[in-house]
């Protein structure tokens, strides 16, 4: 069943992990993302230096899927260039929406690939993609 592949130890642990749930010191960019229908909300903070994401973290409240997704994204984006991070966000959103399914292609999403089961849970898609959409909106502004 789809939900067994989502509420795994890896994901539930990430959802409660405090490492990435904090303010970013010297943040150069901050953006708030909200799912109005369910009340998930998070503020993503980034410190970008010379086009490289030196640090990424978030604050806010939401379900395990949105929180784990934000935590995994913070890990993934740290150390990447802004453009590379944008490309990974598009790929993650593609995975959740079911348009990117190739295992080898998903490998570069690292732990975040563990959320692919959400693509089979239409009611929760918006929870998983919220942090990634927030990143894309943040770099646009």
């Amino acid at each position: 069943m789809a939900i067994d592949s989502v509420y795994t130890e890896l994901i539930t642990e990430h959802s409660r992990d405090k490492r990435n749930r904090r303010r970013v010191e010297g943040a150069t960019c901050s953006h708030r993302g909200v799912n109005p229908s369910c009340g998930d909300e998070l503020t993503l903070e980034l410190r970008v230096e010379n086009g490289i994401i030196e640090d990424a973290a978030f604050t806010g409240a939401g379900c395990a899927i949105s929180q784990a997704s934000a935590s995994m994204m913070s890990d993934l984006l740290r150390g990447k260039s802004v453009e590379e991070a944008g490309r990974l966000c598009e790929k993650f959103i593609g995975m959740i929406k079911g348009s990117v399914t190739d295992e080898a292609e998903l490998e570069e999403l690292d732990e975040a690939a563990a959320l692919r089961g959400v693509s089979k849970m239409p009611a929760r898609v918006k929870c998983a993609v919220l942090p990634w959409h927030t990143y894309l909106a943040a770099i646009e502004t």
Partner: peptide, 23 residues
Amino acid sequence: AGVHPHDAATILNDYGVAVRAGK
């Protein structure tokens, strides 16, 4: 305790129980 209502409702649905969750 410790479970966001959306996750609780998703799990209840896995057992056929429909409740509302959120605000």
